[in-house]
Amino acid sequence: MRVLGLSSGTSHDGIDAALVEFSVTPGGADLRGRLLHHATTAYEPALRAAIRAALPPGKVRLGDVCGLDTRLGQAFAGAATAVLDAAGPADLVCSHGQTLFHAATGGTLQLGQPAWIAERTGLPVVADVRVRDVAAGGQGAPLAPVLDLMLLAGKKGRWGAVNLGGIANLTVAVPGEATAYDTGPGNALIDAAALAVTGEPYDRGGALAATGTVRTELLDRLLVDPYYARTPPKSTGKELFSPAYLDGAGSYPPADLLATLTELTAVTVAAEIRRHRLDHVVISGGGVHNPTLLDRLTRMAQGATLVRSEDLGLPADAKEAVLFALVGWLTWHGLPGAVPAATGARGPRVVGAITPGAEPLRLPAPLTKVPHKLTME
């Protein structure tokens, strides 16, 4: 079965797409995924500006939200058709959409109306994948452990995974200790500061941070945020780590500010790696392109080996989109798409809502065995 996964993360810079062919191995114990194509479609500047204006602490009218839902749906439809034109047909689309607000158990909102995707592609679309978990008492996040735990199943040693997106999240894949949660900011504050002080959307290659000095008084002030002391399950977003979070930090030289925020991400992620005594950590997300951040993280992780997700057959920039391709496959087969140990839900739930495509909706027969391991090819 070929599933097209679509995602746009907390960095809201564009739409990641991955076309994955899934097959169940003989005996049904394992799942194989073959990445056929992946691409990123950048948001048009006007659309990205509209997203940024709608994110907390911005104030928007209901009409603006409705219009943004439509514009994002059309953008996701365009990204989907571009991949299908380039790489061939699919059986299903799973779209995460663009998160506009995430209040954990208080609700979560992803925009990007899936009807536009279904209409443009003619394919059924799984979307709105977080809300069912929230309704079951969970936080609807993180969803990454759905992929991480299957990808790391059976590995010897204490393995984990970190995704360095706008928000950083950690998955602990140690048998008997499996958990996952957002550790705090990944690139969100770094990107916000870079935009404010340089006009560029991010600190390319961590170059500016590399020339700066970590201001310990600012770092210490940031580290007292209560979020870090909370026990999992926990998730966060730009509702907390927004550009407004940096109010009062504008007096620092740009290089020092970027160096300090890069240190903040490294310190908070490394602390959780050490807490769980991980010896191998698979890293992915936009932060892997920031050598300054990776250098600081490697130094602070105290012996844990950082493994690029490419080494497991999963390009770092494609991981989120592959995750949602997997979630779509699971939903289509009536299997849970969230990990209760990570989200805090009362139990596993099949996630998402299905928008039919051009043909009558025909779901497959239930699987007799549930795959617990995923091998990417």
Score class of each variant (00 low, 15 high):
251 S>L: 07
375 T>L: 04
77 A>T: 09
41 T>P: 05
50 A>R: 11
221 R>W: 04
339 V>R: 09
359 E>S: 15
276 H>D: 04
342 A>M: 12
227 Y>I: 04
221 R>M: 05
29 A>E: 15
3 V>E: 07
65 V>F: 02
170 L>D: 11
82 A>I: 00
250 G>H: 04
372 H>N: 08
247 D>A: 15
11 S>E: 06
235 S>W: 14
159 W>N: 11
77 A>V: 07
204 R>T: 10
181 Y>A: 00
264 L>H: 05
153 A>H: 15
358 A>Q: 08
259 A>R: 08
202 Y>N: 11
126 V>Q: 13
154 G>M: 05
92 L>F: 04
366 P>M: 05
285 G>C: 09
76 F>G: 13
300 M>N: 06
199 G>S: 01
109 L>S: 13
96 H>C: 14
293 L>G: 12
359 E>Y: 14
134 V>H: 03
178 A>Y: 00
222 L>R: 10
62 L>F: 07
365 A>G: 04
169 N>Y: 15
67 G>C: 12
191 D>N: 09
341 A>R: 15
137 G>H: 06
357 G>S: 06
308 R>V: 07
357 G>D: 02
29 A>L: 14
196 A>V: 02
14 G>C: 13
104 A>M: 15
178 A>F: 01
218 L>A: 04
219 L>Q: 05
231 T>D: 13
9 G>W: 09
140 G>Y: 12
274 R>D: 15
238 K>F: 10
274 R>N: 15
198 T>E: 08
356 P>V: 01
278 L>E: 10
4 L>G: 14
98 Q>M: 02
179 T>A: 15
361 L>T: 03
159 W>S: 13
227 Y>A: 05
133 D>N: 08
135 A>F: 10
257 L>M: 11
259 A>S: 10
288 V>H: 07
265 T>N: 04
96 H>W: 10
223 L>M: 13
229 A>R: 04
123 L>I: 10
353 A>C: 12
191 D>A: 08
259 A>K: 07
93 V>N: 01
372 H>Y: 04
300 M>I: 03
188 A>R: 14
207 A>F: 00
55 L>K: 02
75 A>N: 02
20 V>R: 00
299 R>Q: 12
100 L>A: 02
352 G>R: 13
354 I>Y: 07
16 D>I: 09
74 Q>M: 13
249 A>P: 09
